[in-house]
Design a binder for these strands. Structure first.
Lengths: 237, 237
DNA sequence: GAGTGGTCTAGACCACCCC
DNA sequence: GGGTGGTCTAGACCACTCC
């Protein structure tokens, strides 16, 4: 792990332990931190900039670096945009899956374009119902090239696809583009997610990429609106 | 404008002009760019890292930097998390507002805690209906300390509050924490947003901060689900 | 004026990728 | 092996904030 990341972790831990409450939320200046962590200013700056991106601190030239307080209280399970974990990881393994469909089909022009593959290439078409504590929460439709994500089977689908991709196929997942929408539910949603009639859903459409820039997954997840929410932090550059 | 930002802009323009299509999406290596822009490697890296954060390129050690293609097609108006503009700016001024409520009240414990002010401090309670091309699209409830955002009046509310804060009060808006949810609509939503019964809404709850870390605004915006969507890009660090 | 962070440099070493 | 990006340094100059 690079030095700047260790420093980032150390300061983050301090923040979470209210260590900087003593100094009225002020974090020591860069030179002091250089001394403490035995590194150059650029390295400290890189560590602190990560915390800025995350919304944990703010910095002001001529003034100092301070812990940014006041977080909105969560009413629902947080689908954070920071991390790229599947549901399995972000719920610490409590998630299980029911495989509703698992087909091998020829890609149409839409999916081919999204996954950047030739038309009529074989792809998986997967529908899964994901459960937390045996209650249905997410209805997930996934398309992946079977030439890329080889050897998928129902056993893997019952657990974590991401785990298989990273630990068995040894591919590296690096980023994802997402669109978040509210939508009305259809009969399929209502049946599987056990919704009341007219309940909405929180839809997340996603393209996920490997670290070589290849889009390996296109998915549409429809979440129970009363269970999930999505958080985001934006900073002006 | 700092050098790294100019370089960032220049390369971004190149990307948008398909300039790197010639080289199969590959961007020149850092040393070549150093030469072209007459700067050091660190400066180039900072510029390219901005593009990585934005999801426009990916980089791979030992390999190179490449344009990341394939964007999801938008079905609705994009509420991007990148920028911190109000609706006025992101719709290029086509937005207008109807002020439904504009009260001065004493802050309760919840709002006080969020805005980091004493309880019973005077705050504005604002309800606005925001329109695009005279059609209602967003129902917005905003709370701000009147000690901080001084001199607000109905005329300002009809236009852009953010504009007033930045250009008249000369305060600097720097960041925002957001929570995005799907929700069922209530009668108030239905009336003002001209919804069909049972239409859902896309709710965004937000705390916005000034560059000195002060939370100046707490707002809850309820958007027509069929008009807006929220986009996000996440990279693993 | 003293102290802070923002930017930038020129160079170094290393890890990784692909041929 | 040659080329790429990732990290890190030691120092520099500057812009800004606050007293």
């Amino acid at each position: 792990m690079p030095k700047y990341k260790k420093i980032y972790e150390a300061i983050k831990t301090n923040i979470n332990n209210d260590f900087y409450k003593k100094t009225e939320n002020q974090i020591p200046d860069e030179l002091t931190l250089c001394n403490e962590f035995n590194c150059s200013r650029m390295t400290i700056k890189k560590a602190l900039d990560l915390l800025v991106q995350e919304g944990l601190i703010y910095r002001k030239r001529g003034h100092g670096s301070f812990v940014l307080e006041k977080t909105l209280t969560h009413r629902r399970i947080n689908l954070s945009d920071e991390k790229l974990n599947g549901l399995t990881k972000s719920t610490k393994g409590k998630a299980t899956s029911i495989v509703l469909e698992f087909n091998l089909i020829f890609s149409d022009s839409t999916i081919s374009s999204i996954l950047n593959i030739e038309e009529n290439t074989p792809i998986y078409e997967i529908s899964r119902l994901r459960l937390l504590d045996n209650e249905p929460y997410v209805l997930e439709k996934t398309y992946m090239s079977s030439n890329l994500i080889t050897g998928l089977n129902k056993d893997i689908l019952k657990n974590s696809i991401y785990d298989y991709i990273e630990n068995t196929l040894n591919l590296k997942i690096s980023s994802a583009k997402k669109i978040i929408r509210a939508d009305t539910s259809n009969d399929y949603d209502i049946t599987h997610l056990k919704l009341k009639k007219y309940d909405p859903v929180l839809e997340i459409e996603q393209i996920a990429y490997l670290n070589n820039g290849i889009p390996f997954e296109y998915s549409i997840c429809r979440h129970r609106y009363d269970v999930f929410e999505f958080t985001s932090f934006s900073v002006r550059n």
